[in-house]
Design a protein around this nucleic acid. Sequence first.
DNA 1: GTCTATAGGTGGATAGAC
DNA 2: GTCTATCCACCTATAGAC
Lengths: 214, 214
Amino acid sequence: MTAAEPTTRTSLLDAAELLITERGFARASVRAITEAANANVAAVNYHFGSKLELIKAVIERRIGPLNAERLRRLEACEAGGEVTLEAVVEAFVAPAIADARAESHRQRLARLLGMAFSQPSSELRAVMLQQFRPVIDRFVPVLIELLPDVSQEQIYWRVHFMIGALAFTIGLGDIVEAYSDGRCDASDMDSISRQLVEFLTAGFRYGTPGEDSR
Amino acid sequence: MTAAEPTTRTSLLDAAELLITERGFARASVRAITEAANANVAAVNYHFGSKLELIKAVIERRIGPLNAERLRRLEACEAGGEVTLEAVVEAFVAPAIADARAESHRQRLARLLGMAFSQPSSELRAVMLQQFRPVIDRFVPVLIELLPDVSQEQIYWRVHFMIGALAFTIGLGDIVEAYSDGRCDASDMDSISRQLVEFLTAGFRYGTPGEDSR
DNA sequence: GTCTATAGGTGGATAGAC
DNA sequence: GTCTATCCACCTATAGAC
């Protein structure tokens, strides 16, 4: 708990994260991970018990702090008395994009997140559900209060739409560069974050056409 | 080209699709696929050349018709003279959700789509890009015309947000059921489609706050 | 904690008979 | 086109010396 010397354990986590985002869960072999970490083949089993437990640890190490930051920002909003819809959406979106910008692992976290979500493995999806649960439980009531004309059910769906747009955007932003023939810059995180927040805020606020039309 | 008798080739495609969406690309082995298709182990290599080529064929078989339907619906809008923003968004969203409802493979197509997108394998991502390119190229100009105050760059990003929300929703709708403690029904495709179209339409239309505020 | 060696298994692919 | 038999690369996990 003193300094940040690279233990074998953290080296394994780093190497695993890198290789998983590069190759996927299945093709990131224990052999390759231990080799990249300058550790022994048996190190994964010694430190984590199995490859699956290592993967879980990789996911939890990233998603945990990310979601904690989301909660922290939401609480900062409430403490400041400025609980606008836009601020709440930003509290959810911005930490993920900020994290994607940090270091060299630009899309790594989000791709990891997206991969873990879309993985059919029920084990990994359970980890994701467990990690996201407190965040959803905290954000939804705030959104309900901010949008009294929108039903609870609709709020849940819109939160889901938000997560989808966010995960897809960070993990696969480079696709837009290809489609737009370079007109869009997937590395301009500030612009992306702003555009996404504005888009989602509008969806939350105006996503219910006049009730009289039904 | 006469009837639809189940050839070995199509049995392999069906079995591969099912197993891929259940287990993922890596864990859907050639052995399991051929067994499920009541075919011989060597059949995959005989008919497709390799496992990778089989996977590509599975993706193309589903995404191709889906995107063709999107183009067809967009053209129907234009022919009818009713090119509203909502109709255009619906032309993009509804075919995917309709397909997800058909047969028993509820989330299969979309999960396949999401998995193929988030797969680090550059081979598969190239297939996805190639399949989506004509759709993007067709929808973007229409959206530009409908939203003269929104820059081209922003349109591309919003289309990206739309795809993300859509893919995530169809592929992982059951997550919402868990988070909402059953308040949301992920099998009510009509409701989901309507809500998603309304959410996205609002994002497209009102996603740009007044310019005077900057 | 780290290493070597190896067990024990599954993967994709193919050769060659039918 | 279909089958069997087989090759061989690679994987996870562990036992046991250091």
